[in-house]
Amino acid sequence: MTISLDLSRRPDQPQGPKSLSGMPLPALKAELEALGLAPKQAGMRAKQVRRWNQFFGATGFEGMTDIGKELRAELAERFTLDRPEIADHQVSRDGTQKWLTRFAPGVEGESVYIPDVGMNGGALCVSSQVGCTLNCTFCHTGTQALVRNLTAQEITAQVMIARDALGEWPSSAEDRRLTNIVFMGMGEPLYNLDNVADAIDMISDGDGLSIGRRRITVSTAGVAPKIPELGARTNAMLAISLHATNNDLRNELVPINRKYDLQTLFEAIRAYPGLGNSRRVTFEYVMLKGINDTPAEARDLVRLLKGLPAKLNLIPFNPWPGSPYECSDWDTIEAFAEIVNRAGYASPIRTPRGRDIFAACGQLRSESVKKSAAEKRREALGIE
């Protein structure tokens, strides 16, 4: 069964020299072969360019001292190492940062850096698509039509932009503030698994961005047939956007449940490679007042998780314009957490971060929609 969406047609590509920044190694090697380099030499030079760019953060070719001057000059003439354009950058009162990145005319996605996550460091929430098809009713991104999948290069670019802003080059820098990557931004990662897997290869490469796979988490709303494949291909940590303990309610909140119900979903989760006490599944559960927050539902959740190495993130609902939901009262959330905790499952309550800049969980939504994408392409080309 084919699950990935075919969004390979890309009329939105910007004009001008191609950027090699964040490009996967096979594609980088192919570009160098197209310059006339023999395959073996192209492979060696591609690794050198990749290391300068993705390990040291280079934004130009002139400093690549282990590459000959003539080749450096030719690379500078034909290519750039530019990051995508940052259309907007906001900083919250709590230190959270949000970037709106313009990957091409009409194609804009958001990423969020959350400082002080866990004992140390911070997490970058990256997008895998612009827009989304899943229409989860509590999620602002779900109100935006899908524009297209992001490429592996565009996913990796989000990490590089954050590294630029934090001044954390080279990748070996000590006391890094960016320590974790979470695919919890715009889009459903398992509907773009090829590009997500390629991006994880680059992000985790020791000669590149060098963030270990145990520090990379991929969240899915429940594309069940792709869950075991995700584990086999990426060895990343798994998170499930759950939010309900019965099919009737989950059908309403997370409509993909109508295709892959809870039984199908949990069968796929149990087939995820390498699950154990050191590799627990994270279940995300947004707390919606009067909808899914009763003690009875907490007990149902415990029964649902039985036998799985799991932990739970309770997420106070983050409001957005036009949302039909309210956040559960704090006492209600704490009572829910206590029931789950007593059953032996860690259930921290996630502190809302970046609400003042609409960077909190469930609030991401760019202005890129299919109609405006076409309009912006015309504007970029000067067509009335």
Rank of each mutant, 00 (worst) to 15 (best):
S111M: 13
A38V: 10
G106Y: 14
P26S: 04
D205T: 02
R163M: 14
R233L: 13
S127P: 02
V218W: 00
T137R: 10
D300Q: 13
G63L: 08
N246L: 05
A244T: 06
F55V: 03
Q15V: 14
D207F: 09
L253N: 01
N195K: 02
R50E: 08
F138C: 06
D175E: 14
R214T: 00
T133E: 13
D82K: 12
P316R: 07
L249T: 02
V340N: 02
D201A: 06
A310Q: 02
G131A: 04
S372L: 15
K69A: 12
G187V: 04
G344N: 08
T141A: 08
E168N: 13
E174H: 14
E33A: 04
F183Y: 13
M44S: 15
A360V: 04
F103Y: 02
K371F: 13
L7C: 13
D248H: 09
R215Q: 00
L193M: 13
G118C: 04
Q54V: 09
G63N: 10
L253R: 05
A162L: 11
G109P: 03
W330E: 14
E74T: 11
M160I: 09
L75G: 01
G36L: 08
C132M: 06
A157L: 00
T220R: 11
K370P: 15
D6C: 10
T351F: 13
E168I: 13
